[in-house]
Simulated scan of single mutants.
Amino acid sequence: MLQPLYQVFIRNIDTNDLFEIPFISLGFTEELNKGRDAKVSLDFKAAKAVADAYNTDILFLFTSGLREIWIQKNNVKLYIGVISDFSIAKDDKGFLRIDLASVGYLTLLSKRRTAEKREFSNTDAGQIAKTLIDESQLSDSPHSDLGITFGLISTSVTRDRTYRFDNIRDSVIRLSNENLNNGFDFDINNDKILNVYYPTKGTFKSNIIFDKGNIINYRFRKPLILSLTNQVYVIGEGFNDDVLFTKRTSPVEYREVFTLLEDVLSDSRDVKELTTLQDKGDRYLLENQSPRVGLEINHLDNNPDINSYELGDEFMVNIPELNITNERKRVYKRVFSIDTNSLTVVTITVR
């Protein structure tokens, strides 16, 4: 079997010039409805040789303006983002290393804000997300255009929202299944296309099975009493006796097993829609009313191929010592890494 070709490219967004850079090690992390980030380490001499070939220097190549970074496998993008941090380190043997940090385009939207007052009434949640991003990209055109376009925007649930200088990344996430029951899943993919999926993203991959044949190792964790909540108060807009709030309670069987366990969510103080508070509380209970089993599985790339499944997809898992037999598990997080020995490992978090 031919060894896969992994490559790192730097793109100068102003000129569209693309530079391939030899790397020492790399890794990226992506999480459903939360975005992605990456780290890449380079040999200074190898990077300088690339800069010299294009009659430029290291600092201009990596830091003089917005720079995209691509990670590819066999000419297919695995990751796209922008360089967010640059450093050079010299060790005690005189070896010079460049370390690059990168964030994806969703995280970059944390540096964008809504207008001083932007209102939506009875508007589909996916369209709200699309509009917030679209208006931001038009707000100071052409300087505000990040190149994000729009693909599938599934019809979901209508919402009322008022935004005042709100963080756009956080505003989109708060509309999603990360924060609300009846939210949506979404991503900004490697072509910089926003997609909104309702009710969820992903398909069942019947051709992928994780078992002793491809699991290198795993980590199983089951948080208990202090991580559980079966009754939650969600606080919205208002003050003192006029505050809007809702109390959401899990079915009695959860309270019988672990006793009453309460919590308060107070990060929605600008919300004046009761349905939103209810959906937020219901989502929180769904995630926390019973022990949320965490299972991390490590596998080598190509067994299966990282391009054969995505976040949100499901497949069968067999781990007899955990009494897991032909159980469908869904991918919520994925970490890809290539170390200095060229070992390529993918760590997935499934539930």
Rank of each mutant, 00 (worst) to 15 (best):
S121P: 05
Y218I: 03
Y163G: 00
T249N: 12
E31F: 08
R283Q: 12
P223E: 01
V331Q: 03
V8M: 02
T344K: 07
F220P: 00
P304S: 02
T246H: 01
G236Q: 04
M316L: 15
F315L: 08
S342P: 11
I216R: 02
N179S: 15
P320C: 14
T29W: 11
G213C: 05
L66C: 09
A46P: 04
S41E: 15
D191W: 09
L138W: 13
I71Y: 10
L66Y: 11
N12Q: 13
E116L: 00
L194H: 02
E327Q: 15
S110M: 11
S139I: 08
T158Y: 11
K48F: 09
I319F: 00
K34V: 10
S308F: 07
N75E: 05
S266P: 00
V172S: 01
K130T: 09
N190F: 07
K77D: 13
N326D: 14
S227A: 15
V335E: 01
D160I: 07
V157Y: 10
D92V: 08
L228M: 06
E256R: 13
G94W: 04
D339Y: 03
K39T: 09
E287S: 13
G147Q: 06
S121Y: 11
E20C: 01
S102I: 02
L138I: 13
K333W: 03
P4A: 03
L108P: 10
K34F: 14
P4R: 09
N33D: 08
P4Q: 07
I80E: 06
I80F: 04
R330N: 00
M316N: 13
E314V: 09
I225D: 10
H143P: 06
G65P: 12
N190I: 06
L343Y: 14
T15W: 03
I338F: 10
V335Q: 07
R269G: 12
D191E: 11
F220Q: 02
W70L: 13
N179A: 15
F336R: 00
N75H: 06
K201Q: 08
N323A: 01
D301P: 02
D134E: 15
N195G: 01
N341E: 15
S290E: 08
